[in-house]
């Protein structure tokens, strides 16, 4: 199952609408092993095509370096289909090379780029095998909720906040 916060979910849809009729693409990075999509990174579709997407090779290197420096991995890799359903194509399956990622597809077909609901679906793609999974959109992630002091429980000792780079 993919658990994703609403702000990121909506930002992905917004990106897909903005780039329609070309395919939009990007990642949501998250701490290694957390399975939590935390940092949305919209990418440029170097192919600038309605039927193909590819990260620019220089952008790709910078992205992975940045994730390395932050101890992150690509938790979600997303792209849009602009005239077909939000289901991995043969090309998507053949080129999927991140076995740990949730592959998200959104479809902006049939006027969805302007208004109305946008299909937002998630898959695992491993060794050519596609498995669709449930998507749960949350307002915020769970331990962000628990990390707040609750009534009746002593407040956690103050923690040195990690500098946000």
């Amino acid at each position: 199952m993919l658990i994703i916060d609403r702000a990121t979910h909506d930002a992905i849809i917004e990106h897909a609408r903005r780039d329609h009729p070309d395919e939009a693409c990007g990642v949501v990075a998250g701490p290694i092993g957390s399975d939590r999509p935390a940092r949305h990174v919209p990418m440029l579709n170097a192919a600038m095509s309605p039927t193909f997407y590819e990260f620019d090779s220089g952008d790709l290197l910078r992205l992975y370096r940045e994730m390395d420096d932050n101890d992150e991995e690509p938790v979600v890799i997303y792209h849009s289909h602009t005239a077909t359903e939000a289901y991995p194509s043969r090309t998507d399956i053949n080129l999927a090379q991140e076995p740990n990622a949730h592959y998200v597809l959104v479809s902006t077909r049939d006027g969805a780029h302007e208004s109305g609901p946008v299909d937002f679906r998630s898959y695992r793609i491993v060794d050519g095998e596609v498995t669709e999974e449930e998507v749960t959109v949350v307002e915020r992630y769970e331990d962000e909720q628990i990390s707040r002091p609750r009534p009746g429980t002593p407040a956690a000792p103050p923690e040195q906040k990690k500098a946000v780079s």
Binding site: T51, Y53, E54, F55, L60, A83, S89, T91, E98
Partner: peptide, 16 residues
């Protein structure tokens, strides 16, 4: 040397 798989795909209508 850094090796990275491309991140690519797409609806690829022609292939259909």
């Amino acid at each position: 040397i850094v090796i990275l798989p491309a991140v690519a795909g797409g609806a690829d209508l022609a292939a259909q």
